[in-house]
Simulated assay, not measured.
Amino acid sequence: MYDREALLAAVDLAALADDLIGGHTGSTRSPMWTCPNPNHAQTGRTPPLSIFRSHHGEQRWRCHGCGDGGTAIDLVLTCKGGTVRDALDFLAERVGHHENPPDHTPARRPTPTHRPVEVGCRDPEGLQRYVDECADRLWKPEGRAIRRWLTKSRGIPVDVLAENKIGADLGPRTQDRPDGMPRALGAVLPTIVDGRAVYAQIRVPHPAPDRPRYLNPRSELAPNPRLTRMRPTERRHPEIVVTEGAIDALSAAAAGYGAVGVLSATYGDDSVALALSRMRQPLVLAFDADDAGHKGADRLAAMLEARNRTPVRLELATGDLNDALRRSDNWPVHLKTVVERAMSTPFVEAAVER
């Protein structure tokens, strides 16, 4: 067992980033790095990753493009993969840190004399207005192309789209937006908490091969929540399906399941595991059938198991959960059958096939 705080304090996060990501650019006072997230296509002139200290003085990193970030542990996991234990071992060897004896009791962190200021959306009214306007435009004649892409190309029912305030951004010449929201045409996928929009991604329907599919707001406008919940119009099953991304979460909602979309396969950190572990319903992981999805699901499952919340795993044959929806002749029955089979044999991964 390591003293986590002592280990992180001993790590020079900037030097670690230089070694794992590559040399930084910019001044010594304000260095910047490229983002290590393999799903983040970076085309800007300035690298988007910076290093800072939290309110408690802990070194942390953040990509201001996709919102990925965390401690040195998260940086090692993003760059090298493996488990949390692997990352701790790597850092301990790097700084010459040793494990504590089994009976070691870590020192308690001093209680702050004041509560840290919670950083939320900088322009909540502007973000809410943007989400409302885009949700309204999806159902107007000018939103027809994006509406057809969502319903015909992706197979999401219209009632599920309306329930989750999915919208259409028709581009910067047509749609006003708050400062920090990407200027692009696409489907708007909001994160709604207590009836209010706290975040919104833009899903570009037909991106160029070298361009990203998902565009995120700058963290100064809305910090990346890492999770988004999608609601079915009628909750027919007790389980919560945890997917990789908002479109897959909408696909689970289309079958009558409560759904949580993890906004990147690399986002399965302690904060995500904690949020999921607090949900009372059984958890079903359905990440993409690729290397990033498998690693992300393995990592998140291990973190949930450490919190005594062992999830069921659905092993997709190919693609993602939305691909499975589009291949199915009767999606609600198909997903229900697969989930029930997995729940009856929780230690066996169930395959989602055609």
Rank of each mutant, 00 (worst) to 15 (best):
D3A: 14
E5N: 03
L8A: 02
L8W: 00
A9T: 13
L13M: 13
L16E: 09
I21D: 09
H24I: 06
T25L: 09
S30V: 02
P31L: 11
M32I: 01
W33R: 04
P38M: 02
T43K: 06
R45D: 00
F52M: 02
S54F: 02
S54W: 04
G57R: 06
W61A: 10
C66G: 10
D68I: 04
G70T: 03
T71D: 15
V76Q: 13
K80H: 01
K80Y: 03
G82F: 14
A87R: 05
L88N: 00
F90D: 15
L91F: 03
A92D: 12
R94D: 02
R94V: 01
N100S: 09
P101R: 15
H114L: 04
E118G: 01
Q128R: 15
Q128G: 04
Y130A: 01
E133Q: 12
R137K: 12
P141Q: 03
I146Y: 07
R147N: 08
L150P: 12
T151S: 11
G155C: 09
L161D: 11
L161R: 12
I166Y: 08
G167P: 13
A168N: 08
A168V: 01
D169W: 06
R177N: 01
R177V: 01
D179F: 02
M181C: 12
M181W: 04
V188N: 05
T191L: 05
V193Y: 00
D194V: 04
D194I: 00
R196W: 05
R196I: 06
R196C: 01
D210L: 03
R211L: 07
R211C: 08
N216W: 01
R218V: 06
S219T: 08
E220R: 06
N224G: 05
R226V: 03
R235C: 01
P238S: 11
I240L: 07
A254S: 15
G261C: 13
V262Y: 09
V262G: 03
S264D: 15
A265R: 07
V272A: 09
L274Y: 03
R278I: 00
R278T: 08
P282G: 07
L283M: 02
L285Q: 04
D291W: 01
R299P: 01
M303Y: 07
E305C: 14
R307W: 01
R309Q: 14
T310H: 01
P311R: 04
T318G: 00
G319D: 02
R326D: 02
R327P: 02
S328I: 10
W331V: 13
W331M: 02
W331N: 00
P332Q: 06
K336N: 11
V338Q: 13
F347Q: 09
F347N: 12
E349H: 13
E353N: 13
R354L: 10
